[in-house]
Every structure is written in C-alpha cells, then in structure tokens.
Design a protein around this nucleic acid. Structure first.
Length: 320
DNA sequence: ATGGGCGCCGCAATCGAGGA
DNA sequence: TCCTCGATTGCGGCGCCCAT
C-alpha cells in the first residue's frame, strides 16, 4: 500500500492571489518526521546549516535520494513529492520560499531578452529534462556567489517580516532578482559530464559524474588521478580513457580549465592579488599559474585584470 | 570492455633575471 | 614590490599497442 501523500495548498500558508508568497526558516532533526508531501506552488530551498537526505519521488525518474549540505539551493516544482530523512544526531536548518510564478515580475523576465528566458531554465526547464539534470539543478555556490545570494535572501526576509508600506512590491522585485541571479549562476556552472556524455554507458556515467562533482568542489585541493580512479571504482588506465572519451580532454586539462575559470571569475569580482588568486584556485606556483592562464585565456592574468578595470570588452577566451 | 607494459611528454616546483 | 618569463629537473600522466 502506497503511503498517503500530504497535499499542501496556498491556503495552508495564507498565500493570497495578490501576494502568493511565504517565507520561513525551519530546523529539523531525527525526531521530527516530515511526511512525504507535494504542493501546487514552487518551493525554493536554501540549506543554511547541517545536513540531511532529501528524498524525492518523481513520475519521470522514480525515487531519488541525495545528500544536502549548507549552501545547496534547489527547486521543488509543483506536484513533486518530497521529504527529508535525518540520521540520529543529524540536524538541518533550511530557508524556504514558497511562491507561485505570478510572484515573479514577468515583464522583467519574459518580454525583453532571450537571455533572461534562458536564465529561467533553472526554474522550469532543467528539472524536467533528465534524471541527471535533476541533480545538477542543485546549485552549489562559491563563496562570492553565496554571499550575493544570501544578501538578497536577507533583504527578502527583512521586507517580508517588517511588512512596511510597499513590501509586497519590493519582495516581488527582490525575488525576481534572486531567480535571475540563480539562473545566471546555474548557466555559468561547469557542465556535468552526463549533460554532454553520449558515448559511455549508464553505470559508468554515474561514476564519472561522482568524480566530476568531486573535482568541481575540490578543484583547489591536490588529488591524483589514482584517487579519482579509486572513486570511480576502476583502474587508473581505464579511468583516464573513460574521462577522455567523455569530456574530450584529459583529467589534468579539465582541472586546469576549472581552476582558470574560477580565477577569471575571481579576477572580475575581487581586488585580490593575482598571486593570491592563483594560490586560491589550487596552483602552488604563481609562475605556473600565469603560464596556464595565458595558454587557456590567451592573455596573462595581469592583462585580463587590466582589461576588466578599463571596463572594455575582453577579447580573451573563456576557460571551458 | 578492461587491464598491463612501455616510453615519451609535459606538469609542477624551483630559481633567477628583468620590467613596470 | 609585484608580476612575467625563461631555464632546469624529477616524476606522474597519457598515448599506443597488445592480451584477456
């Protein structure tokens, strides 16, 4: 017998037609059982603290489970059934924003540019495409992006709580900005192997995805091909072969591209010294960082930074 | 599809010189 | 002082070939 699914509706959260939005934070632990539930609104989830296992039932993909950690952001679309499981001793603090599409300033999103429409992939398109995309629609932000997002979330929370004159319009605008920014981070994130991997088989694809996920989040630490191969449960030789087959490049080249891309982003967003940025993205030697940067981007980090500060269009290539 | 052997290539680290 | 570039060196990664 299948479990009863709790169906949550707008009236549960006092959402109105004029302002269909609800903001709340909640703490969850092993003892507080949240039943499997679904809703007819969009749920934007920010993991603030702790960890949990997110359990997700989908008509398309069946039952999915994945671990969530601080900084993770994901969307639960209308009709999707989900809940959380926490092991004894485990706790999680989550920020939830429940809303209907009417909350978003559609004039800003849909009428102007195709680019804005593409940003909305994060909300509507990607989660329905394929099983792997469901996982990749969990955004993991770097420190700078997370700060931008959290500043916006704090503003929304402040407006929503204080409820001063005009707060509904301000929350709409802030939520629209938040979704656009998330869409931008989503489109800028490194592509998972599975999204372009057509040549390798299912089980292998999962293994490579696990490794690529590791590389994306540990790009600035030292690891060997041997360790990665172990993670993928295959020999070094086989791993290197599959990696090349899947990505079109070698492990080291892929890692360099990842590091340089992050370095480009940092150069454009901070005033940190080039040497510090090189170290931060995982290069032990500034000389070697310069060389790799120039090979990939087509100009030295200094030239790249100078180009940014002039505010002009950069001709340099993008690491990808 | 997968793994092993072998040899070459280039990454990564280090040092030094020179320019802005 | 900071950044870039060149030279050098040890060793790990990768391509090729062949076997299972």
């Amino acid at each position: 017998m299948s479990p009863t699914i709790l169906r949550l509706q707008a009236k549960t959260f006092n959402m109105t037609k004029a302002f269909p939005f609800y903001f709340f934070r909640w703490m969850h632990d092993h003892y507080a059982k949240l039943p499997l539930h679904s809703h007819d609104f969009i749920e934007l989830v920010f993991v603030w603290n702790g960890s949990a296992t997110h359990i997700f039932n989908s008509r398309q993909f069946g039952r999915l489970e994945y671990k969530i950690y601080p900084g993770d952001i994901f969307i639960i679309s209308p009709g999707e059934e989900h809940t959380y499981h926490l092991d004894p001793g485990e706790k999680v603090e989550i920020i939830n924003m429940l809303f209907y599409p009417e909350m978003l300033e559609s004039s800003l999103l849909f009428e102007s540019y195709q680019a804005e429409r593409e940003l909305m992939d994060f909300l509507y398109v990607q989660p329905f495409l394929q099983k792997e995309a469901r996982f990749s629609s969990i955004l993991k932000l770097d420190a700078i992006a997370a700060e931008e997002v959290m500043t916006l979330v704090a503003k929304i929370e402040k407006e929503y709580t204080a409820q001063q004159k005009g707060y509904q319009s301000l929350v709409k605008l802030l939520l629209t900005e938040l979704v656009l920014r998330l869409g931008r981070f989503y489109s800028e994130r490194p592509r998972l192997i599975s999204e372009r991997l057509l040549v390798v088989q299912g089980g292998t694809k999962d293994k490579l995805n696990r490794v690529l996920g590791y590389m994306e989040h540990h790009y600035n630490t030292d690891f060997s091909v041997e360790q990665l191969a172990e993670m993928a449960s295959c020999s070094e030789r086989q791993f290197a072969r599959l990696f090349k087959q899947a990505t079109g490049t070698t492990v080291i080249n892929y890692l360099h591209n990842l590091r340089i891309k992050r370095a480009q982003k940092m150069l454009s967003r901070t005033n940190e010294k080039i040497a510090a940025i090189g170290m931060e993205v995982g290069f032990h030697d500034i000389s070697f960082f310069n060389r790799i940067f120039k090979r990939i981007v087509g100009m030295s980090p200094k030239e790249y930074q100078a180009g940014l500060s002039r505010g002009g269009e950069l001709e340099g290539r993008t690491a990808d």
